[in-house]
Design a protein around this nucleic acid. Structure first.
Lengths: 211, 211, 211, 211
DNA sequence: CTGTAAGCGAGACGGTACGTCTGGTCTTACC
DNA sequence: GGTAAGACCAGACGTACCGTCTCGCTTACAG
């Protein structure tokens, strides 16, 4: 999660509870203040921790917020609803619900903005948030293949490229609707979106994208 | 663009060149520093203008950046390439090209992040950036209808809803791929994406989304 | 006193009252906290002034304290008591009275201590405190010469050297008794000290010191 | 010197060398950094000792520095040069030589400054530094009385008062010239100063100071 | 063609947060 | 129990910007 001196055997060990308190305080501050008015001094105070403790563990505001927000998405689960379309609709709705929470909106977009000028930060976001949830796409596909809704995918490279496209489309559309358009991601929208997505994918998007 | 005292008839008029100089300086600073390290004092210096002049015209950093970035998207044009797919591919590529510029990335995402806590700001973004470019979707559709590639749309409400969905999907996917995934939006990707989108839309997404 | 851009015609002029408020607040803080616990942030608060204002005018704690303390010694006056001995006793008592004040003790000794490692600071102390008060020695001597108590001094270099010695002896003895010995500088002590000093000087200390 | 648990019979005994190492490290740090930038953490590191160890033995920076500096003055010796004036000149020069060392200047003046607000500290300085060296005045006087240069002093109270005055004048003048005036205490200055002092004392300063 | 109202540059103002450093304490593991 | 290591809380440091203000000057319309 954050860098730790790997083999420090002596000295007082780092407080185990401090991490959790700091991340929770960060989310709390994001809700109340938003990213731009969040200050590390305030987070430290809320967490009942000295500023030095915070800086000892995270390099700055961005890294802290990424970790605080990433935890939010761990509660995403692929529902087993019997059909691919229903599975997708379920997970998209979950995703939208989390993204509608103010700590997610404020924090995630801000660090994405910062990441446009900081490759290490983008990598951290990708690792902590995106790749960690890509499991949902993979699991959904394999489940659909078992059900016979999707053909087995022989080429792993193509499979990976298609999974990325799906992730860009799902996450992008939900984020854009929520944050830019400012419209709710309700069941009707999700159903329409899922229909377009599945119909579009049926018949080999990957084939075309690969030429 | 920005508020101006409506009926000030007396006194020295505002410098006409200052606005353009400030917006250009803002974009320059966005390129060099990114949003979070951009300071209004620095923009004023770059523009050869006093800080007071800047504050007289814009309420703050966010409003200034929205205006500076919005101008970038005015150069988008719908190419007339003979087929709907090619039109879409063309405009998506243009959009991706603009979005790849650092002043666009840095600025746009940051103000979107700020807008999560500021409805007035989101409205300003929607008006200045999104709605201003929605013309492209509408024009592309009507052109495709003339060509016979799309059926005429009888219900204007459904038409509007579909246009919004398209915009969310296009803008969202491009933004996500560029900023989060960090992968280039090249011709291969655009072709794959457009294929999925068009195949998905064919046959009445709006119908399903409307029930 | 402190550096000032000499010919800045534009911009908001510096607040005239801020200087006095800051120096007074510094003395107040010296009384309450002493030098080592005095913080510039606290001084700024007491003076009703921002920390930046303070840093804009003084380079740091030492320079500020020198100026704050130097003002205290401006109230020294050479009494015209009719005899050299009485004049000296009067001014030594005044000096001791000022030095007994906590803001003088705390501040002066601390900056002298700092000056052991900072030549610029020692020069500032010498200029602001010592040389500014050396007038007392010079005036006292010329007055005594007019009275016929001292012979006219033909050699200005010798005169200056003697004045320095006198200053070192007077200031040094009073400071040492007050701060190190911790004994009061009362009239009895002053009379004894002055007797030793005058008897010692009578008959040409300067002559011997010059060979 | 510093408090020691008097009857600790069990456990690991305190390192005997640690004290000396810490005091030497303190003087070293005083030379390099001066009092205000000296930190106990740094002293501990230089001495190869844990901060805990240091705090267990001294209450704080001031006490530590007093002990470190006091040792410096133990090398003062009254030379037996055959005349009172020469004895005084010799010891004044020795004193000035020690005081010119940066660890003495920096440390001594700083703790004197601190002592203006801390009576316990002033007492510690007086006991460790001043009273410990007052032997020089007493020994010098008695030697001069043996030689017949000074009359025997019948009244012990007067004798003590005169000794104090001498100490204030000698130490004060040397300190002031060294630290405030910033001029060297060379042989010429010492000869002039001693002349004034002895001539001033001859004939009963104490008598006048006592009335 | 002069008065006046607003805009202009410069830069000081009271503030807030930064990220670092130090002081003094506490908690480990080892000796 | 003493020690070295180092994390802990608390809070000051000096810097950078914030958004506002006070200046002396310029501009251009209005009377």
């Amino acid at each position: 999660m954050h860098s730790r001196s790997p083999a420090s055997r002596t000295g007082r060990p780092r407080s185990a509870t401090a991490d959790a308190a700091i991340l929770a305080a960060t989310r709390e501050a994001l809700v109340e203040l938003g990213w731009s008015k969040l200050t590390l001094g305030d987070v430290a105070t809320r967490a009942g921790v000295a500023k030095t403790t915070l800086y000892r563990r995270w390099a700055g505001k961005n890294e802290l917020v990424v970790d605080a927000v990433a935890e939010l998405f761990d509660e995403l689960e692929l529902p087993d609803s019997g059909s691919l379309a229903a599975d997708i609709e379920g997970v998209v709705l979950q995703f939208a619900t989390i993204l509608a929470r103010p700590e997610a909106k404020s924090g995630l977009m801000a660090v994405v903005a910062e990441a446009t000028r900081d490759d290490a930060l983008r990598e951290r976001i990708r690792a902590s948030v995106v790749d960690r949830q890509k499991r949902l796409v993979l699991e959904g596909r394999s489940r659909a293949q078992v059900r016979g809704e999707l053909p087995p995918e022989p080429d792993p490279a193509t499979a990976s490229r298609t999974a990325d496209l799906i992730f860009d489309m799902v996450a992008g559309a939900v984020v854009h609707r929520t944050l830019v358009s400012g419209e709710p991601v309700d069941e009707a929208w999700v159903r329409g979106f899922t229909l377009v997505l599945l119909r579009g994918l049926a018949g080999g998007a990957a084939h075309t994208a690969a030429d």
